[in-house]
Design a protein around this nucleic acid. Structure first.
Length: 508
RNA sequence: GAUUCCGUAGCUCAGCUGGUAGAGCAAUACACUUUUAAUGUAUGGGCCCUGGGUUCGAAUCCCAGCGGAAUCACCA
């Protein structure tokens, strides 16, 4: 049952009567300037810059567009399509073939509400104030907005009135946010451009985009708590993937030179402004390469994305200017700790490092191995200093069960993480391809699990079997797409780069 | 999970030390057929998040719950 608001707004009998032509003879939107449908707002922008006002009817001909009616002031109305807003001139008593149709159109215009979809045909002209405007000579009703949109107004100084800003409503009703807040819509367009740009970069190298299982019997490849589900026919538990690394490596074993996957990962952990339970990652594995090669590849990749998406390798993020031009600073894990604390821990054993942590009042417990302790120090003392893109390399072996041992530094692995603005955005290894070593590393993880480390990695026998058939030397990389998007769009919160961030259900 | 702040009209918000609701925009009607957020006049519109408590009386004070935000914890 419609309440008073909607009954008042819908005026069903009246509208049906006025709009019958629109339903029976659906408008066909012409192809104009090779674009269909015509992005009129973009076209007008083009005319402003390139044609110096040559937007006469002779030049542009009749134009038909469709979109949302977004308010009226006298004979001037706004029509909004996917690309922006265009002013319409709707002259009372001036639209129609004969008296009857003129009257009908006038009545239809009076019944329009903000948000209604209409289609119009007309010619362009410039008003006294110079705004390029569509002089409407045909108008049909297409679809009704029963609920009123919150209308945001902006003046010439850029002041915003009556903004639709409540984050809860913006996220829950993203369709409204996208309709009335073009600045937030832009973020999502940019996100799409980032992914397209990345995909093109990889495709140009000849690497293959693949898809691997999201439902996995063993949740391998990372350390995190999974979402668990159940398959009825097989009557077995399945896990939503926390990573796809072990599957992509199986494909390298299968003979591909380079494979990558862009997709959702799922981690059953806390939510905050940089974590959502499902998030998008890009993982790539390239055969016959190592992590040194990968560092240089990442520099080229990020610089080219930044240039393509923002027009410059420099971006401003929360007041910091970040430059994605390579090469980036490279510091080993130990060097970085030495640089920011003046203490060299490279020769210390687990007990000494634990003692050091205690003098700094870091939260440590007996379940933490040497690797975790070092990670704790790094997170507390170093991470926040790394504003410009910086590679941290050569991690302690215990922290990284899937990376290859360092070619010259005992106890370390060939790994780097890329930090930007104090946050990790990429992680890469020279991949461990020795099945015997890999089995030992998994067994070390089991020991950590026995000590109470809930994130220790599970052993995957089939993955070991794949390695036993032989895997070429390979370098692998993962990039968090959401965090990269946050950086390139200057957003503080992951929710602003996800169309539908996870929320608690609305309850009453 | 902890702490702090917030929840009032479709939207943005005001409601002081308790006396049962206000503005602007949006909506409706009429007039105006024009401009560049905002024409005028009039009108309608509220389980003041939910449930308890204190009180003669609660949007306001107290408790619990629900939802959101920030910070912290967690998070390779």
């Amino acid at each position: 049952m419609l309440d008073a608001l909607y009954a008042n707004r819908f005026k069903p009998e009246a509208l049906l009567e006025k709009s019958i032509e629109g339903f029976s003879d659906p408008i066909q939107f012409d192809e104009v300037l090779g674009k269909k449908p015509l992005p009129l707002a973009a076209y007008i922008e083009h005319l402003r810059h390139d044609s110096m006002g040559d937007y006469t009817a002779e030049k542009t001909g009749k134009i038909r567009i469709a979109g949302r009616f977004m308010g009226q002031r006298g004979p001037f109305a706004k029509l909004q399509d996917a690309y922006g807003q265009v002013q319409l001139y709707i002259q009372k008593g001036g639209i129609g073939e004969d008296e009857a149709s003129i009257q009908k159109t006038d009545e239809l215009v009076k019944l329009l509400d903000i948000g209604d979809y209409i289609g119009v045909t007309g010619t362009l002209f410039a008003t006294q104030t110079g705004e390029i405007t569509l002089h409407v000579d045909e108008l049909i009703f297409l679809s009704k907005a029963l609920k009123p949109l919150p209308i945001v107004k902006r003046d010439k100084q850029g002041n915003v009135y009556d903004a639709f800003t409540d984050p809860e409503q913006r996220y829950r009703q993203r369709y409204v946010d996208l309709t009335v807040n073009p600045q937030f819509k832009e973020i999502f367009i940019k996100r799409s451009n980032i992914i397209r740009s990345m995909r093109r970069f990889f495709d140009e190298q000849g690497w293959l985009e693949v898809e691997t299982p999201i439902l996995q019997p063993i949740h391998g490849g990372a350390a995190a708590r999974p979402f668990k589900t159940h398959h009825n026919t097989l009557d077995m538990p399945l896990y939503m993937r926390i990573a796809n690394e072990l599957y992509l490596k199986r494909l390298i074993v299968g003979g591909f030179d380079g494979v990558y996957e862009i997709g959702k990962m799922f981690r059953n952990e806390g939510m905050d402004r940089t974590h959502n339970p499902e998030f998008t990652s890009m993982e790539i594995y390239v055969a016959y390469k190592d992590y040194i090669w990968m560092m240089q590849m990442v520099e080229q990749l990020l610089e080219s994305i930044a240039r393509e998406v923002n027009g410059s390798p420099e971006v401003t993020y929360q007041g910091n200017t970040i430059n994605f031009e390579g090469p980036y600073e490279r510091l080993s894990m130990y060097e970085s700790i030495k640089k920011y604390t003046d203490i060299d821990i490279s020769e210390m054993d687990e007990q000494e490092i634990r003692a050091l942590c205690k003098t700094w009042h870091l939260e440590v417990d007996e379940s933490m191995g040497r690797g975790k302790l070092i990670d704790e120090i790094f997170g507390e003392k170093v991470e926040h200093h790394l504003i410009q893109p910086t590679y941290i390399t050569d991690y302690p072996l215990e922290m990284t069960p899937l990376a290859k041992k360092h070619r010259s530094k005992p106890g370390l692995v060939e790994r780097f993480e890329l930090f930007v603005n104090g946050k990790e955005i990429a992680n890469a290894y020279s991949e461990l391809n020795d099945p015997i070593d890999q089995r030992e590393r998994f067994e070390d993880q089991l020991k950590l699990a026995e000590r109470g480390d809930e994130e220790a990695m599970a052993l995957d026998e089939d993955f070991l079997r794949a390695l036993e058939y032989g895997m070429p030397p390979t370098s692998g990389l993962g990039i968090g797409i959401d965090r990269l998007t946050m950086l390139l769009t200057d957003q503080h919160s992951i929710q602003e780069v996800l169309f539908f961030p996870q929320m608690r259900p609305e309850g009453h």
